Simulated assay, not measured.
Amino acid sequence: MEQQMMKGKVVVVTGSGGGIGRDIALLMARQGAKVVINDVGASLTGEGHSTGPAHQVVKEIEAFGGEAAANTDSVADPLGAARIVEQAVDTFGRIDCVVNNAGILRDRFFHKMSAEEWDAVLKVHLYGSYHVSRAAADHFKEQGGGAFVHMTSTSGLIGNLAQANYSAAKLGIAGLSKSIALDLQKYGVRSNCIAPFAWSRMINSIKVDSPEQEARVEKIKQMTPAKIAPLAVYLASDAARDVNGQIFAVRNNEIFVMSQPRPVRSVHRSGGWTPELIAEHAMPALRSSFHSLDVSADVFSWDPV
C-alpha cells in the first residue's frame, strides 16, 4: 500500500466530471483526500447542464472506498463558486486545496471572434479561477495553510492560433496565481500552475486537415489525462510546502518548470531616446533577443517521451 499523501485533506476539483479534472480527483481520493467533484455537465463549448458527470465520478471514488461529494454550481458565478467551497466545509469540515480546472473552448480567429465568445471563455477560466480561489482564501488564511493548483496553458504562455480568448485567460491565470502566492505566502498558503499536455475534449477540437496534423494528434493521444494528476496531487500535499509561485508543464512523462518573463537585454542612452534613435540604434541592438511568432507546437517540437 503506497503512502497516502493527501490523508485528512479536503480538496475541491472544478471541472472534474471528465478529462484531466476527473483523473486529478480520482488520484486525490486514492491518496486519501475527501473530494468535492464540481462539474456543470456542459458541452465543451459550455452549453447544456447535467448532474450526471459529477455524480458518476463520485460513484467511481466511492467504489474504491474513497469519499466524495458532487457539486454542479458554475465557477463563472461568484455565488456559485462560494457554494462550491461552502459545500466542502459543510460536508467534510474544512478545505485544504482548490484545483482550478474548469474550462470551455470557443476557438475562433481573432478577427472573427464575437464579444460573446470572448466573454464566455474568460468567465469560466479566468473569472472562475478567481471566484473559487477568493471563496477559499478566507478559509486558508484562517487555518494558516492551503494550496491552489491552477491550470494554465502553453496557448497563453507561448501562443496558439485562433485562441485569443483562451490564451488571454490562461496567461491571466498565471498572473493571478503569482499574485495569490505573493499575497498569501505569510499565511502559509501556496499557489502554483500546471500547463497540461493531455488528450481530452479540449484537445479533441484540434482541426485535422493534413497528414502532418494527423500524425501530431496521434502523438498527443499518448498523453493521457492521468499523466497530469501526480503533479497536481504533489502540489496540493504538504510535501510541496516550499513550492510556491511556480509554473510547471507536464507532457507525457516529462515535467518542466517554465520560465517567467524577465528582462533579457537592454539598451541605454544617457541623453534619452527619440523615435529616430530607437529605429537607428535601439531596435538593431535588441533585435537578436526578439521572440519569434512561435506556437506551442514549435517550442515543444519533439515527440512525447
Rank of each mutant, 00 (worst) to 15 (best):
H125G: 11
K178A: 13
P230S: 13
K227S: 08
K112T: 06
V189R: 06
M6L: 14
A137P: 00
D90H: 13
R251N: 15
G80K: 01
T154I: 13
K7R: 11
R216V: 06
M1G: 14
K59I: 01
S191A: 15
S167Y: 00
G172H: 08
S266M: 07
H150E: 12
I255Q: 04
A147Y: 01
E142G: 15
D238C: 09
E60G: 10
K123R: 04
T14R: 02
A29S: 14
D238E: 11
A76P: 00
V264I: 09
L26P: 01
A33D: 08
F64S: 11
P304C: 08
P261L: 12
G19Q: 09
N165I: 05
M113W: 00
L26W: 01
V243A: 12
H139M: 06
S179E: 11
K186Y: 04
R106D: 13
S289M: 08
V99H: 04
K207G: 11
N160G: 09
Q222H: 07
P211E: 10
L286F: 06
A115N: 04
V57D: 12
T45F: 01
S259P: 03
A115H: 05
C97A: 13
S155F: 03
L184E: 11
A168V: 02
M113Y: 04
K59E: 15
A102Q: 04
M202H: 07
R201Y: 00
D96K: 00
E2Y: 03
A63V: 05
V299W: 00
D209L: 02
L184F: 06
C193Y: 03
E116T: 06
P275E: 15
S16G: 01
E212D: 12
V267Y: 06
N192Y: 05
V13T: 07
V75M: 09
V85T: 02
A282V: 10
T51Y: 04
S301P: 01
S205I: 06
A135E: 08
D39I: 03
G146F: 02
K141L: 12
N100Y: 00
S301W: 05
K34E: 12
P225D: 08
T14I: 02
L122F: 01
K123D: 11
L176Q: 12
Q260T: 14
W199I: 08
F300K: 03
G48V: 05
R262W: 00
D138E: 15
S296M: 11
P78Q: 07
G66Y: 03
A232D: 00
V189G: 13
P230M: 14
L184P: 02
E47S: 13
G245D: 07
R201P: 03
L105R: 00
I180C: 06
A169L: 10
G144S: 06
N244V: 12
V75Q: 03
A135T: 03
G65C: 15
S289Q: 11
